[in-house]
Design a protein around this nucleic acid. Structure first.
Lengths: 340, 340
DNA sequence: GTTTCTCTCGTACACGTGTTCGAATAGGCT
DNA sequence: AGCCTATTCGAACACGTGTACGAGAGAAAC
């Protein structure tokens, strides 16, 4: 691996001048030397050692991102927004998948800290786990104490910059839509119990139920894993225990699509016999059949805003900025009035 | 930011002993000192500077991955396979999105080289661009010359370890299926012209055409961008110029789904009036309506195998390993015999 | 001709860690 | 007690780069 000293030796100059030329320093350098050095760089295919650079100038530039799983469309969209802003600022993004494992999440915070990232963006949902939450908050505080920035997406215990989707309102819109269509027997396919996202969306559903004089009995709420297969299983379980359901409300689109697939294999018409509604409005929601009625979150925009918060160097650290983003009902073809 | 020297000072030992204890060196250390050091680590929340470590021990450990776009399901699946193997080996993965920009691809190779990654996995398709191809191959050779490993997915000019999907055979299977159903007027929605993936899949289509005594006239081939919107546009263009088409063959699933959406808005029944077939078998292919007939590539497995190649330290560098992976037709509901 | 100023460039050190080598201490053996 | 050895630990350097500081040379001013 060619080093700066190699370049300097070949060009017959000192490492200092070579460094100045390569980095375009403000210090003046003769053109003759400049040419010799650049020629040497080309011949040796020299690339500066990023780690040595980072050690020398204490100028942290990379950004760390922790998501649950990039291959999940929800996070893929958010990540796209994060990347767009980051590359626009010439920043490298390091993506870490926690796969919803709190332990891994803690490990990744340490790893990113070790890599001297300028900021950490936490894009996953928060957990209902006192011990873990305290540990995570502690590690983030320590990181912030050393000058690092932190931005989170979603509701977390950590006090700091955040982009918070209005999951509760989304859940409220979702359930209200079903009640207004006349549904009385609604099955809910919820996400993992320990995620704040699940809790918040469910809370919105419950508020809508109260306002419409209904209830959401526990037997009509099945907890699944936010993915397609798990959503299909939950739909099956709900229909088996409560055959009279006329609507299935899934707390994300993947599970709604799983429910659609199960209903199709059972020959149950959607929306004629059973309505299905999702959450998030992933790109594919338009392309399933029937096209999925859902609650839209501006995922790409949320990622972009979180990265913007993380990159803002001169923000007041004592006054955390909370950016609320709204949820919006998207009417398509998978919901209708219940059968008479 | 707490440093190793801080820990040593607090524990009342030299940096050397602290380092030995933290890294679990083979050198023996007294238990009393060990406890003091570990206590200091905990109190100071010390995390070793990864860059300094990497500089000290010349032991490269991270892996660089260059894809076109992680949020594209095709690459999301591949990335999942890559990640699985990498984290199983305790390796960090740095993901770079080139967004199909050759210039960016070259820049990212340099960036990864600068970051001293142990290996580079090139997961995008190859390009038909002599100048760029030479430049890329040159940069990769230089990198290999310094001890780095390279593994590519797909057909590239670079001679080295590779995982190569049989795109030609996939194209052949795809077209043969349509011909055997009796289709004579087939429109092709191809990918970007300059990608080898497009060329290879198209070559398979042409071979099938020859064997069945047919042709693929240029007016029935539309080039699009491998995404949904672009696929819908291409489908519209094809149907406008050749209203008699009874089948649309898209060279990936995203474009096939775009075509489905266009056909739906035009009220054209699939597969009764027009058959649609895709390529890749992305997870959502099952969930669109009608469920998409397509050609399956084992995307996750391809990623896993590429990472396995990249991580194999003691492979013979002079004999590049080429792993062929097969394509397989998946029959679903979007294809049928043409209308009588 | 001497002084001073400016313009360039090189020397030396710092960044934070791993590791080699030598020193010091304790303990065992005669 | 004296010597030798085994055991631990610390001082010093290397990794590759950026940069403050100083040195040298040439030019300008007197």
């Amino acid at each position: 691996m060619a080093t700066l000293a190699d370049v300097a030796r070949r060009a017959g100059v000192s490492p200092a001048t070579a460094s100045r030329i390569i980095n375009g320093s403000s210090k003046p350098v003769t053109d003759a030397l400049r040419e010799r050095v650049l020629a040497a760089v080309e011949e040796l295919q020299y690339v500066p050692n990023a780690h040595a650079q980072l050690l020398a100038r204490s100028h942290r530039t990379a950004i760390g991102v922790i998501v649950h799983d990039v291959s999940d469309p929800y996070f893929a969209e958010i990540t796209r927004g994060l990347q767009r802003v980051a590359t626009a600022h010439g920043r490298l993004v390091i993506i870490c998948n926690s796969y919803r494992d709190p332990v891994k999440e803690l490990e990744y915070v340490e790893l990113l800290r070790a890599h001297q990232v300028a900021a950490i963006v936490l894009a996953g949902s928060g957990y209902h786990d006192e011990e873990f939450t305290k540990a995570l908050d502690g590690k983030l505080r320590v990181y912030e104490g050393t000058g690092g920035r932190v931005a989170v997406i979603g509701r977390h215990e950590h006090a700091g910059d955040a982009v918070v989707p209005d999951n509760e309102m989304g859940g409220y819109l979702l359930a209200s839509h079903l009640y207004e269509l006349g549904h009385e027997h609604i099955g809910v396919i919820a996400g993992p119990k320990q995620l704040t996202t699940t809790t918040d969306r469910l809370a919105g559903l419950r508020r809508a139920a109260r306002e419409h004089g209904r209830k959401l009995p526990p037997t009509r709420v099945a907890y699944a894993d936010f993915d397609r297969a798990s959503g299909a299983d939950a739909a099956a379980a709900l229909l088996d225990t409560e055959p009279g359901l006329t609507a299935l409300a899934a707390l994300n689109d993947s599970m709604a699509i799983g429910a659609l697939s199960l209903l199709r294999t059972r020959g149950i018409a959607v929306p004629e016999r059973v309505s299905v509604i999702g959450f998030d409005d992933m790109p594919i929601a338009r392309d399933v059949t029937p096209a999925l009625t859902t609650v839209r979150l501006p995922l790409v925009d949320m990622g972009a805003r979180a990265m913007t918060l993380a990159l803002d160097e001169l923000a007041d650290r004592t006054a955390p900025r909370i950016e609320q983003v709204g949820a919006e009902l998207v009417l398509r073809d998978s919901t209708a009035a219940p059968p008479a």
